[in-house]
């Protein structure tokens, strides 16, 4: 399996552990990732709230490069994933949009490059049997809440590869690791996303609401597939509990870190030391 890899800006800073663990897991699963040469930012939320033409053109710069590579794209950031898929949809749906994008990026792009989140690639394209063969360490006894957030399944016409209100792809991945995915009602509720910096009080309230439900449902850690979900639940966890009520410390792991542990990869290859809320006490119990 070969994919054009779109890392996205977060993977160079706040989510370097996602970058490292995704690459390590793909290597172990024999998924070849080739970085899109000269990739650039997808524009994320600030582009689509500011300039509709820019919001389609920035992802198209990268989609067009993958078209030249002749490969489907995979990415691990839910926001990058969403913006690339939405841009494709807009370009496919309208000749006017396709022509406009062509004028802006200076090259024609037909909207035909496939874009998949790595979660989709591992669970649905590679499949549980192929992964099960490589699992070396069953994470038995670990109780995990799968948190999807918004952009992995919304807007569904453009991005969903699963039921948008009740997705289960991450639960399938957790089952592969031998851990137990608990049921909980907030898995597609928003953490406040890009309000993280400008309205951290709102994000604190939303993160606390999510974390207290995680605990009420009996989970001891959360698994995520988005750098912003991870930051809002992990980096902002101490502020959230200080402002809205005490909760036990809850480690927030990327799906690639959880899977990497099950694949028997060493912790340093998974960037576990980057977590603000340490996963060490949890892992010592497994």
């Amino acid at each position: 399996m070969k994919y054009a890899f779109f890392p996205g800006c977060s993977l160079e800073s706040t989510a370097w552990d996602l970058d490292k663990s995704a690459r390590a897991v793909c290597k172990a699963l024999e998924i070849e990732l080739i970085d899109i040469p000269g990739w650039s930012c997808c524009g994320s939320t600030p582009a689509h709230v500011s300039n509709a033409s820019l919001a389609t053109a920035l992802p198209a710069m990268n989609l067009q490069k993958a078209a030249d590579m002749g490969m489907p794209i995979t990415t691990v950031c839910a926001s990058c994933y969403g913006r690339l898929r939405v841009a494709n949809q807009k370009i496919n749906d309208s000749d006017e949009e396709r022509e406009r994008v062509g004028r802006i990026i200076g090259k024609p792009y037909d909207g035909k490059v496939e874009v998949h989140h790595l979660l989709d690639v591992i669970v649905n394209k590679l499949g549980s049997e192929a992964v099960a063969d490589k699992v070396e360490r069953k994470l038995s006894g670990m109780k995990v809440a799968c948190y999807y957030g918004c952009l992995l399944s919304r807007p569904p016409e453009a991005v969903a590869f699963d039921n948008p209100e009740h997705p289960s792809v991450m639960e399938k991945l957790v089952a592969m690791t031998g851990a137990e995915a608990i049921e909980w009602p907030y898995k597609t509720e928003c953490c406040g996303a890009s309000l993280s910096i400008s309205n951290s009080d709102v994000v604190g309230r939303l993160s606390h609401r999510l974390l207290s439900m995680v605990r009420r449902a009996g989970a001891e850690c959360v698994v995520v597939a988005c750098p912003l979900c991870q930051v809002n639940l992990d980096l902002r966890q101490a502020d959230a509990t200080a402002a809205h009520g005490k909760l036990p410390e809850t480690p927030i792991l990327y799906f690639t870190q959880l899977l990497g542990l099950a694949l028997g990869l060493p912790e340093e290859e998974l960037g576990l030391e980057a977590l603000m809320v340490s996963a060490a006490p949890l892992l010592s119990m497994v």
């Binding site: 000269g38 650039s40 930012c41 300039n51 033409s53 820019l54 920035l58 710069m61 200076g106």
Partner: peptide, 19 residues
């Protein structure tokens, strides 16, 4: 820096005109 940083500046300019 993206290798295409110069190109991105042009993309911003053209997108603003198109908008």
């Amino acid at each position: 820096f993206s290798r295409v940083a110069g190109e991105i500046r042009k993309v911003f300019k053209r997108a603003e005109e198109e908008e």
